[in-house]
């Protein structure tokens, strides 16, 4: 046993508002879990091949171009977003298990401020999501997208913004679920709409039909797409990777900064309530 004399010095003084060491340790936890999770890796690669390569070339055969870009080029940023959506939801949803019968009870019983736990969870999940998104970038040369160092760095910034936003949405949902029985429907009910309604697979302005005529999207569809926060980050990502945007840059930037910030505050609040609730 360590001697009593040392005990006085054993622990650092309490951090009541935020504890950076705890947040970083929880980010490390997410990375350790990811490193050993070959299934998640495989999912990221197979989704990329399925969407980017198979669908990209398959549908690309019918559409010659979207505003001068091949279909594969057009959807590459969208597939990055898809991998981020999947990874974020997967990370957030483990909270349900964690809180009821898993590791989160260890955290709730410990003296850590929940703000640090929430930030650690969000940043950890977003980091894993950014790595899953990066898998898609590895296929960029194949899709005819030329990457440069600044493009990749900016893309990572957007990926983090999207990851933090989706993690906070996931944490808000997970903190209200008591079981997983509805998990399949919830994940399909969140992941797929966020993806399909983001302009990831078809442009916001409408589709150029086979005869070369512009087919406008119906108004209700546009409303849903503009209401989807992912739309703005996908647009920003496409701007970063292809220099092509469909929305005003200031609007994209406001959404990409303000929503993840607001989501983080809401997630901190939701996780603080977890401690003494129920």
């Amino acid at each position: 046993m360590i001697h009593e004399a040392a005990v006085a010095d054993l622990r650092a003084p309490p951090a009541r508002v935020f504890d950076l060491r705890v947040a970083l340790a929880l980010v490390r936890r997410e990375l350790l879990r990811y490193r050993r999770d070959r299934a998640q890796w495989f999912g990221g690669v197979s989704r990329t091949i399925l969407w980017l390569v198979i669908l990209g070339y398959g549908i690309g055969a019918s559409y010659t171009n979207i505003e001068g870009y091949t279909y594969t080029q057009y959807i590459l940023p969208g597939v990055v977003a898809l991998n981020i959506i999947f990874a974020s939801m997967q990370s957030a949803i483990t909270l349900v298990w964690d809180r009821q019968v898993g590791f989160m009870r260890e955290v709730l019983a410990s003296p850590v401020p929940m703000s640090a736990v929430a930030v650690g969870k969000l940043v950890g999940g977003a980091t894993v999501a950014a790595m899953q998104g990066t898998i898609v970038l590895l296929f960029a040369p194949l899709a005819g997208v030329a990457l440069t160092v600044p493009r990749v760095l900016l893309a990572w910034a957007v990926m983090y913004s999207l990851g933090i936003l989706l993690m906070s949405i996931g944490v808000l949902v997970a903190s209200r679920l008591a079981t997983f029985e509805g998990f399949g429907s919830i994940s399909n009910g969140i992941v797929l709409p966020l993806y399909f309604l983001s302009g990831a697979v078809f442009p916001l302005r409408g589709i150029v039909g086979l005869g070369g005529f512009m087919v406008d999207l119906p108004a209700w569809l546009r409303v849903l797409m503009y209401a989807n926060p992912v739309t703005y980050q996908v647009d920003l990502l496409r701007g970063v990777l292809l220099d092509f945007r469909q929305l005003p840059l200031p609007l994209d930037l406001i959404v990409a900064v303000a929503l993840p910030a607001a989501g983080t505050l809401a997630a901190v609040e939701a996780m603080a309530r977890m401690r003494r609730a129920g």
């Binding site: 929880l26 879990r33 019968v101 898993g102 989160m104 955290v107």
Partner: peptide, 19 residues
């Protein structure tokens, strides 16, 4: 209440930081 996807040592290290 262990994280069973990380190692015993990593679980203990995490606990040490929490406290």
């Amino acid at each position: 209440a262990l994280d069973d996807r990380i190692t015993a040592r990593e679980n203990l290290e995490l606990h040490a930081v929490l406290y």
